[in-house]
Write a protein that binds this DNA or RNA. Sequence first.
RNA 1: GCCGCCUUAGCUCAGUCGGUAGAGCACCUCACUCGUAAUGAGGUUGUCCGCGGUUCGAUUCCGCGAGGCGGCUCCA
Length: 649
Amino acid sequence: MSEPSSVLTVPTDGAGRTAGELLDRKDVAVARVNGELRDLAHVVAEGDTVEAVPYASEDGRAVLRHSAAHVLAQAVQDLFPGTLLGIGPPVKDGFYYDFLPERPFTPDDLAAIEKRMGQIVQQRQRFSRRVVSEDEAREELLHERFKLELIGLKGAESGTADSGESVEVGGPELTIYDNLTGDERTWSDLCRGPHLPTTRDIPAFKLMRTAAAYWRGDQANPALQRIYGTAWESRDALKAHLTLLEEAEKRDHRRLGAELDLFSFPDEIGSGLAIFHPKGGAVRRVMEDYSRKRHEEDGYLFVNTPHITKEDLFLTSGHLPYYADTMFPPMEFEGSNYYLKPMNCPMHNLIIRSRGRSYRELPLRLFEFGSVYRYEKSGVVHGLTRVRGLTMDDSHIFTTREGMGEEIRGVLDFILGLLRDFGLTDFYLELSTRDDSDKFIGEPDAWEAATAALQEAADASGLELVPDPGGAAFYGPKISVQARDAIGRTWQMSTIQVDFNNPERFDLEYQAPDGSRQRPVMLHRALFGSIERFFGVLLEHYAGVFPAWLAPVQVVGIPVHSDYDPYLLEVGERLKAAGIRVEVDTSDDRMQKKIRNAQKAKVPFMLIAGGEDVEAGAVSFRFRDGTQDNGIPVGEAVERIVQAVRDRV
RNA sequence: GCCGCCUUAGCUCAGUCGGUAGAGCACCUCACUCGUAAUGAGGUUGUCCGCGGUUCGAUUCCGCGAGGCGGCUCCA
């Protein structure tokens, strides 16, 4: 990612100088010396390679954010003496620092801390690196119990690369960074570094929010107060980031869902259980109808299964022992425990097992919009993206071991095509595979074959592939499709999962050409994941401005005067007959108000009619962007709208 | 589930230092009949999230519960 020309090799007379002196550039945050990030104050030796790492780079931002985290910690300890330090790493878009304060931080505290940080930045404190022995560090950090624990971890060498702890003790030696004001030590922290030269070099930062986090991410540990901040290479970059956050908030599907009257979550029904209002129902129905049509074209067989089942089914599948705590508790009657189903696959297995199967039937693709219920913990329920009742567009495909590769390629193609039809076009893939852990079941060669098949399909797609070793489910590897939305956020969408476990547990078989009984391979495939979630993602992607084919109301007729109501009602009938979702606003609002209302509802087409139009047998289009097209003959107007819907634009 | 914050009209939000509440929008009625983002007048609306406690009196203070939000953990 960096140009090779920016790497320089230290000449003889450069030895003993600092990396900063050699690079001598204003936009440099830190140096990469022999491949390792170093402070600009790092003294180089002859033959070292030195590379400038600018602020506006991934590594540069990480360093400036890490330095900002130190400033945050110093500010907190200034204002709240006695507050203990956790860890403070850079993260995506910013940084955080965990604290154990004597009382929780308030929003007012946050403002005060931010102000104090500004003063520390102004003081131009130097970040100064100091190598210490473990004993020295222990003595110096006697009162910082969490830091002491980290030092202990380092001794045990159990700090992992991406746990956040590595920014403190991840290096080969133990180091402390001192903040020097002049020559006086103002503050210090156990830290691997590197840092910017001075606090003044932090170009732009802002504190965002407080939150809670467990020490080292473990619920059994004390809950710490985390302060999140963001920091950037320039004021403009900071501003752009804040603008993006505002944009994301405007697009929040929970907010748009209420504003556009699409869905709600009544307390009376319960947390995480959505009801879809008529407009949300219209969008959802179009999504389902289109999905059904495409599945039908692609050879899927439609099935239906009940919402509850006796517990034996989930004992057979092996789910109950593992997932009992995320299933709704059982209902007991007639001597059995009945559970709401948290997944559809066991029922689909029973369809396969209902009679003998021939190789001629394979691949057998079962599809269902299956409603499932999962008892998500109260703190994780979130809008439509994390709910307790959801409808999966769930498919289970049974195929031969030999046919698996081709089937996976076909399914991946199908998925990407359908997602593109819904307007998501920017993807990458993630391949989750096994590691050496013994939690993974099934024969190694089956894993190998399945992983190879997934890998091949991924390669054939031409999309970027991110490996996720160890991320597979215990019963098989998977590919997941990640989609980037209109403002660049990524969402995990579809997954294709190979399953060696279910066919075994349900003793699924088919008869092969040679007459032998063989075990099919099972693929799980959810495309939207859940309709609810996909609805939420699309709503945010489009910011509520659905393309005409998905819009809950596609056309609003607006008469200039109530005299023209009958005329527009007739136009409305023609559109309805052509399959268009149309409303005519015959309220006694003024037309300006009607336009405003339709505009706020983000209706794709407004058809306005007044005397001129009626006389000409025409209507006037107004589009969502405010442009217009007047005097269009009614027949042509209907055709234009039908065409736009058909083209899914 | 854990930590913190929050819950007042359908929505967004004021307010009551403890004496049962208000604005805008929405909604209803009437008048207006208008050519591209708000016509005017009048009116309705609340267990102040629920249950206990303290108090002469609780929407306000305290406790418990529910729901929401931000995180953590989790996400077959």
